[in-house]
């Protein structure tokens, strides 16, 4: 039987000099889910995502993806969209696609060009000349064009207009497959609640709730968004 467990965090702690960003986090995530990672600013959402993608090292604890500790094997199957633009600005979109294709075996070039076309982005444009919004779209295209096992999207709908937000959610849904899991971190729950299976609530570096969206609605008689506002009322 195929192992459905995709991601496991065991006692993961991350200390920064000034504060504890994650506090002994235990978490198991299966394949085929779309998961909302929710919490106020500074609750540890970005830290967790960066730990899984391997650009942060935990202070203690173990993270595995497909049973492998974070490393080359996990980086092959994890597709990460950071909350910032990280692409070399002197490159053309075409060059970056070639770059991704060179380094990721699971990168689907046709899918990338298809999505660029649908968004009217010229592959010969340089990133330097693009607006921030367009750059973010290019990054999303790159990340979603990989046939990965785990997609980590950090605040993908943060500062985008409603049309772009719908496009992003649409892209996530149409790329869904039952072997892959998508983790979306956000504090704008209302917009994405309907696309989520499960939600994880983080507060001050601890997991305060892990539940399915319908469970919350069934048991609490309110949307996740409403619940979130209650739990994190400040």
């Amino acid at each position: 039987m195929e192992n459905r467990v995709l991601l496991e965090c065991k006692g993961v702690t991350k200390n920064y000099p000034s504060k504890m960003a994650l506090n002994f986090l235990n978490l198991t995530i299966e394949r085929g889910r779309i998961i909302g990672l929710l919490g106020p600013n500074g609750s540890g959402k970005t830290t967790l995502i960066k730990l899984i993608s391997g650009i942060l090292t935990p202070s203690s604890g173990v993270i595995t993806v497909n049973g492998n500790p974070i490393g080359i094997e996990t980086k092959k199957v994890v597709s990460y969209l950071p909350e910032r633009t990280y692409l070399n600005s002197w490159m053309k979109v075409r060059d970056i696609i070639a770059f991704f294709k060179d380094f990721y075996q699971n990168f689907n070039e046709h899918k990338a060009y298809d999505m660029l076309k649908r968004l009217n982005i010229n592959p010969n444009d340089r990133l330097k000349t693009m607006s921030k919004g367009t750059k973010e779209k290019v990054q999303l295209i790159l990340v979603m064009s990989r046939d990965a096992d785990l997609y980590l999207l950090d605040e993908p709908i943060g500062g985008v207009d409603p049309a772009a937000r719908d496009y992003i959610l649409d892209t996530i849904l149409s790329n869904y497959n039952e072997n892959a899991t998508v983790i979306i971190s956000t504090h704008l729950i209302y917009d994405i609640e309907r696309v989520l299976d499960d939600v994880l609530f983080l507060q001050n570096g601890s997991l305060v709730m892990a539940s399915s969206v319908d469970e919350i609605r069934e048991q609490q008689g309110k949307s996740v968004d409403e619940l979130f506002r209650e739990v994190f009322r400040c």
């Binding site: 085929g32 889910r33 779309i34 869904y176 309907r194 989520l196 299976d197």
Partner: peptide
Amino acid sequence: RDMAAEAGVNPNTMQK
């Protein structure tokens, strides 16, 4: 998958 996309919801929810 298509029905989920049309409704704008998660495929697992539509499945359910």
